[in-house]
Structures are given as C-alpha cells and as structure tokens.
Simulated assay, not measured.
Amino acid sequence: MGEYILLMGKTLRRPQKGRMFFKLFMREINDLGVNSFGLVLFTSIFVGAVVAIQMYNNFKSSSIPVPPNFIGYATKVVLILEFSPTIISLILAGKVGSYIASSIGTMRVTEQIDALDIMGVNSPNFLILPKIFANILFNPVLIAISIVFGIYGGYLAGVATGNWTQNNYIVGIQMYIPNKFIWYAFFKTVVFAFLIATIPAYFGYNVKGGSLEVGRSSTQAVVWTMVMIIIAELISTQIFLS
C-alpha cells in the first residue's frame, strides 16, 4: 500500500511537457477507450435484454399485480444503478487492466523505464498519468453508451419475445428516477476508472524478472483491480444510497 501511494505521488504531478502529454493522452484514449467500444456495445445489448426478461419473469410470478410499464422502468434503474457501471467496469478491468500491466511491465523488464529515469524523466508521470486521464474522461462515456444500449437491448427483447408491448416499455423508461441515481452511477464510474488505470500500472511498474513475470503481474493486476472495484462498489453504495 505504501509503495502504491508513493507511486501515485510521483504520478499525479504536472506533466513536464504539455504537448507530449496531450499526444500520449490521445493515444491512450484510442487504446483504452475507443478500442473497447465494440465490446461494451455487444455486452450491454445482451445484458439489457437479460435484465428486461428477468424483470418480466419476476413481475409475472409476483402475487401483486405489477403494471407492464414497470418492466422498462425497472430495467432502466437496474442498468443505471448496478449493471452498466459495475459489470462494464469489471469487463474493462480485464481488458484494459491487462493491457496496462503488460505494456508497462514489458517496458520495465526491457529497461526502457530505467532509460527514462536516467534521462531525468519522471517515468510514472510520463507513463501512467495519460492512462489515468484517458480512463477517467472516457470511461463515463462508455458507461453512458452502455446504459443507452442496455435499455435498447431490453426493447429488442420485448420485440423478440412479445412478452410486453413496445409502447409499455417506452413509457416505462420515460418514468422519473431520482437525479442522485445518475450521480451515483457516474461517481463510482470515475472511481472505478481510476482503479482500472492505477492498480495495473502499479503491478506493471514494479514487475521484476522476464516475460513470465510480466504475465503473472498482469493476472495479479486484473484480480486485484476487480477486488478493489467490488470494495469501492460497497463503499460508494453506503455513501450515496444509505
């Protein structure tokens, strides 16, 4: 924990060269964010469909009559509160986290990081800070896209199964939800994005050995990132929704 805090202390400083930082930042936007768009889109549509079908089955088996509009409403609420921010972040922890850990770990074992340090470059700031900014700025975009396409997935499930009408579903998703639900979803998205960028970076930066150790470090990074996301989920839920 102490080493992680020390590394973040070196990372979270003003970049030495703004133009170079911006160039690296835009590259990370593409590598970490844009390249994840297809995976997020595909997962969200099917997750939304599954959530909507589960809501329908739960309401159907309930002893209390539930208006059909509530299928769309419940799907929207569940996607916003839990499924899109948490499930998509866990998926990104596997995809993005392994990439960050392996790329920085490879630079470490090939002594490229040592070369940066010898040249007087703040290597944590140079390598990790663009990844943090890219994740924090682009992950909320991915989650917003996930929510929209998850809701659309629920709509498609209704069209495919005929269990609920399109009009009822649309009326349901237009029903009011508290603004704090939106704030809660995007607050924890930003927290998750920070964890996804920094924990794998820590494991990659401190890897020792060769290519085998880089692979092990990537695995550890993904596992610990997922664990911390779940812990952060518990804490943020207690803070916002208690």
Rank of each mutant, 00 (worst) to 15 (best):
Y155C: 03
V207K: 05
G2K: 13
N168L: 08
Y155V: 05
R27A: 12
I151L: 05
A144P: 00
I145T: 12
G33C: 08
T43Y: 02
L79Q: 04
I88P: 00
L129A: 03
E111I: 05
V222Y: 09
Y56Q: 09
V141T: 11
T165A: 14
G38F: 12
S218A: 15
I229W: 08
A157F: 03
L156R: 03
G158M: 09
L12D: 03
L39F: 11
V121P: 01
N69M: 10
P124N: 08
T189E: 05
I104A: 06
A221P: 08
D114T: 07
I173Q: 09
V34Y: 14
M119V: 01
V191T: 06
A185Y: 05
T237C: 10
Q166K: 14
E111K: 13
I230G: 09
I5C: 02
Q220L: 14
G9N: 10
E233F: 09
V159M: 11
Q16W: 00
P124D: 06
A232S: 15
P68C: 05
T75D: 11
A185N: 06
I64K: 08
M107Y: 04
V40R: 02
K188E: 09
I239A: 14
V121Q: 02
K10A: 01
L92W: 02
S103L: 02
Q166R: 13
F42L: 15
I80P: 01
K95V: 12
M119Q: 11
T106V: 06
V47N: 05
K17Q: 10
L234A: 15
W164I: 13
V34M: 10
L212C: 04
Y176F: 14
V50Y: 03
I104V: 13
V214C: 10
M228V: 13
Q16A: 01
I91H: 02
L7R: 03
A134C: 01
G215K: 12
T189Y: 02
R108Y: 06
G9Q: 06
A185M: 05
T198Q: 07
N30W: 11
T219P: 07
I87T: 11
E213P: 07
I230Q: 11
F187E: 04
N135E: 07
A52F: 03
G158C: 08
E82P: 03
N125M: 00
L212W: 08
T43W: 00
I235P: 09
F138I: 12
S146W: 01
K10V: 00
V214M: 10
F138Q: 03
F70Y: 14
I235C: 11
I91D: 05
A49W: 02
G215W: 10
V47G: 00
I231M: 14
G38C: 06
I132V: 14
L127Q: 01
N135M: 12
K60P: 00
I177L: 14
V96I: 14
V47L: 15
D114N: 14
E3M: 11
D114P: 02
L81T: 07
S218Y: 08
I91P: 02
S63I: 05
P178I: 13
F83M: 15
N122F: 00
Q112N: 08
G105P: 06
I173A: 10
T161N: 10
